[in-house]
Design a protein around this nucleic acid. Sequence first.
DNA 1: GCATATTGCTTGAAGGCATCAACCATCTAT
DNA 2: ATAGATGGTTGATGCCTTCAAGCAATATGC
Lengths: 148, 148
Amino acid sequence: MSIILAILGFMTESAPPTPAQLMDQLARAAAAYYRHFAVASGEHGLTLMQGKVLGLLRRPMPMRTLAELLVCDASNVTGIVDRLQARDLVRRETDPADRRIKNVVLTTEGERTVERIRARLTTDLTALEQLDDEDRRAFQRLLGQVFP
Amino acid sequence: MSIILAILGFMTESAPPTPAQLMDQLARAAAAYYRHFAVASGEHGLTLMQGKVLGLLRRPMPMRTLAELLVCDASNVTGIVDRLQARDLVRRETDPADRRIKNVVLTTEGERTVERIRARLTTDLTALEQLDDEDRRAFQRLLGQVFP
DNA sequence: GCATATTGCTTGAAGGCATCAACCATCTAT
DNA sequence: ATAGATGGTTGATGCCTTCAAGCAATATGC
């Protein structure tokens, strides 16, 4: 293989990124994701954390579970849910089987809000929809591999 | 193609993820990335934001630039840099060419700290190093495509 | 040159998030 | 029935975040 072709090969294929470069790109991607999320939440007067909690409530769940999913102290969740409840996006229902447990439930308004946030996010990250089947599979596999 | 083979095909190839599923996985990945980052920073008594600022200071830069990179108010950076400076991880140097500008510089201790945080992060995300050249290229391309 | 923006940074006030210790109510186990 | 574990809240403290106001230094316009 001539040296010219070798150079051409380099130019078209380019060297694979180092782990350090990938780490940088991950940092940028994560920052970008949360920036989008914060903006989408902010459009409804919600903080990132409030938006996150709404997004988790696909089904009612105890405060405790929310704390575990958010990887934070339970006392933290109290305040966040308080503020969501003050806006009627969420309500607490004490579990009849175990009256210590308070299940957090989305109100109708809460469902509408989370739906709009999700919609905004998908129109913001249009590129996701434009990936072909192959790329979607690869992206899913790679994300799952790096963050097991 | 018989229905059996079709089912087998499904089972081995599986359907490509929908954009919504990818969005979920992105949410998990971004959360995981920041959790790792927060832990790595926390090991040195630093918050996520303080760690982020240290990580940005590969070269000295004005407070203003830091605010732009962090996408936050300039007044915010004042406090963060104050706390980093109180621990001698960083110092302010007023720019001789424009004495309004204060360039934030890593101290030797700051360099060591950021190096350790980076090291911790790369050992945490070992999977990055285990990707082959093909996967690294693909991951870089996909991340760049989704978060341009 | 000099008055007037403009820019870079800081301060103070107000609110949300994060963690810890202490507490109450409820459930579980012996 | 008593002791311990669990779910949730409260209060204190510190950090992040934004906004409005302000100071210092530089740029701009005449």
